[in-house]
């Protein structure tokens, strides 16, 4: 009886150990996968958004899509010696959907298999310092400068920008709408003791917010009207929406989420609200396990003119406006002018 249940369980596992899309999965599946010819190793793990229309085949859909995707990609790129690449990046690039389209493009072009870890910029840089990531895509300029001074990155390339905005309930209890200076707006929120939500997660957005509060006087940590969610941008927007609170967000995440938010843009266009993204390959001298070539390839990809054009067009069809503005080759001072 009991071994019967075990047999059933094993059967169940064998059933799902079939063709996998992942490069790393075979390790785990090796014990169970019975036949499953592995698909071309370069087959993008992510199913690209457009090329294959969803088919109604009965067989595991992975098996039907992977081969169709492979021929277009396999010959395109010679397989790199070490295809495993860890990208540590911010939640905003994931929550806005940009990475979902950029990463498959990069994988198709180069044959790398990217492990995207979407965390705050702070954690991303800590991972870089520890040699746990190969390349960073981050937006926390002051911390990035420190990171570079510490010798943790090989170079720091400007990729794109958008801007931060202060959003809040349409009723606007602190009356900050159309105030030009973001610092003044925060002062008014503090005076009115209107509920303000902070990310509180040491992310790029959080760093900017803390900096602005510093300029406005002091960070209102511990005040009842100042609350920290400790979560990513998307989750924080959900909370702000429910609590009718003010918060600072990057414009891309806001636009991507606008349809289910009852929060309006109240302050925008102030110079300190610029949100600048850099790509930083991690310094390979830190650990022999860092994939230096891969990190470099990703950085090159992000500033390549094709990718830059793609970034400029991203979101236009869906939101009527671009979410990010490409800046490769510019200096930081030129951005947003």
């Amino acid at each position: 009886m009991r071994h019967l249940s075990l047999v059933l369980l094993i059967l169940l596992l064998a059933a799902c150990g079939g063709p996998t899309q992942t490069a790393s999965a075979p390790k785990a599946a090796a014990t169970t996968a019975p036949t499953a010819p592995t698909t071309a190793p370069v087959a993008p793990t992510a199913v690209p958004p457009s090329p294959v229309p969803p088919t109604a085949t009965k067989a595991p859909a992975t098996a039907t899509t992977a081969p169709t995707a492979a021929p277009t990609t396999a010959p395109a790129a010679a397989k790199p010696a070490n295809p495993d690449l860890i990208l540590a990046t911010t939640t905003s690039t994931q929550d806005s959907g940009l990475l979902d389209v950029l990463i498959p493009r990069f994988q198709t072009q180069t044959g790398y298999v990217v492990k995207t870890v979407a965390v705050g910029s702070g954690q991303a840089m800590t991972m870089g310092e520890r040699g746990e990531a190969d390349v960073l895509l981050v937006h926390s300029p002051d911390a990035e400068v420190k990171f570079m001074e510490g010798g943790h990155g090989t170079k720091r390339l400007l990729v794109m920008h958008n801007d931060f905005i202060i959003i809040g309930p349409p009723a606007d209890p602190a009356k900050i709408k159309d105030i030009k200076s973001s610092v003044d707006a925060l002062k008014k929120i503090a005076d009115a003791k209107a509920l303000f939500l902070s990310r509180g997660d040491n992310s790029g957005t959080d760093a900017l917010e803390k900096k602005l509060w510093g300029q406005a006087g002091s960070v209102p940590k511990g005040q009842t009207w100042y609350q920290e969610t400790g979560q990513g941008m998307g989750a924080t927007l959900n909370v702000a929406n429910e609590k009718e609170a003010y918060t600072i967000t990057d414009r891309a995440t806001y636009l991507a989420r606008k349809k289910d938010l009852k929060l309006d843009i109240l302050v925008e266009g102030d110079k300190p609200l610029l949100n600048i993204y850099h790509v930083i390959p991690v310094n390979p001298t830190k650990s022999p396990r860092i994939n230096a070539a891969g990190g470099q390839a990703f950085a090159d990809f992000m500033v390549a003119s094709d990718t830059q054009k793609f970034i400029a067009a991203f979101g236009v069809d869906k939101y009527g406006t671009a979410l990010f503005f490409p800046d490769a080759g510019k200096s930081e001072a030129e951005v947003g002018q």
């Binding site: 799902c16 079939g18 996998t20 899309q21 992510a46 199913v47 294959v52 969803p54 088919t55 109604a56 085949t57 009965k58 595991p60 859909a61 992975t62 039907t64 899509t65």
Partner: peptide
Amino acid sequence: VSGDAELWSVIW
């Protein structure tokens, strides 16, 4: 029903 590849890979 549509056999969405991404969903099935997640389920598997």
